[in-house]
């Protein structure tokens, strides 16, 4: 299916307009997909995601396991011959999927990021033990990594008491501003 220049899918407009990731210069060379270290865990290859955006296949792209398998290693962005920021595109798709409350393919990953950010919002710094605790509470999976946690604890690698910044009001202000922008 060929789309005329004036018949750009609304999905493409959203990605290139609101999300500011230019993808139109993609000529499907597949360098991103071939060089991706995580491609074995993706159901749709990154170059195909780009094509799906052109075709307006929004639900399919946002439901893909691809966007949550991406490790943000930036290999694709570094190597794209047309300077497409594919890693940023993955961020944009993840944001669209979470913002719209999409039933994502990989639930644990967004839950982790939300626990991580809530730790920053509270104290301005990550308290690893508290953050991991919140993540475990939300996923209900307490057994995974419990042995590893103990081994790290024994070696003093898990700090018990959190530290925090004095400028918590400033940090809270940054989160409030981000929230306002998201709603507007």
């Amino acid at each position: 299916m060929l789309l005329e220049r004036n018949n750009r899918s609304s999905f493409l407009q959203e990605i290139e307009g609101k999300r500011e990731v230019e993808i139109s210069s993609c000529f499907q060379c597949k360098k991103c997909s071939n060089g991706c270290p995580v491609n074995f865990a993706m159901d749709i290859m990154p170059h195909k995601i780009i094509h799906m955006i052109r075709l307006g296949l929004k639900d399919e792209a946002l439901k893909s396991s691809t966007i949550w398998a991406c490790a943000s290693c930036e290999t694709c962005t570094t190597r794209c011959p047309n300077n497409i920021d594919i890693a940023k595109l993955m961020d944009a798709l993840r944001q669209m999927a979470t913002d719209s409350g999409f039933d994502t393919a990989q639930k644990d990953v967004p839950v982790f990021h939300s626990a991580f950010l809530s730790s920053i919002k509270k104290r301005g710094r990550i308290h690893e033990l508290g953050m991991i605790g919140e993540y475990k509470l939300k996923t209900g999976d307490f057994m995974k990594d419990s042995r590893l946690g103990w081994e790290m604890f024994k070696r003093g690698k898990l700090k018990i008491l959190p530290s925090g910044v004095r400028g918590r009001k400033e940090i809270r202000g940054i989160f409030d501003e981000a929230g306002r922008r998201k709603r507007s």
């Binding site: 943000s72 944001q95 939300s114 920053i120 301005g124 990550i126 400028g167 940054i174 981000a178 998201k182």
Partner: peptide, 19 residues
Amino acid sequence: NCCGASSAHITDDFLSAAL
């Protein structure tokens, strides 16, 4: 303060720059 790490850029562009 925390730089926001991957969690910020995966979640929100403003946070990922402001932090």
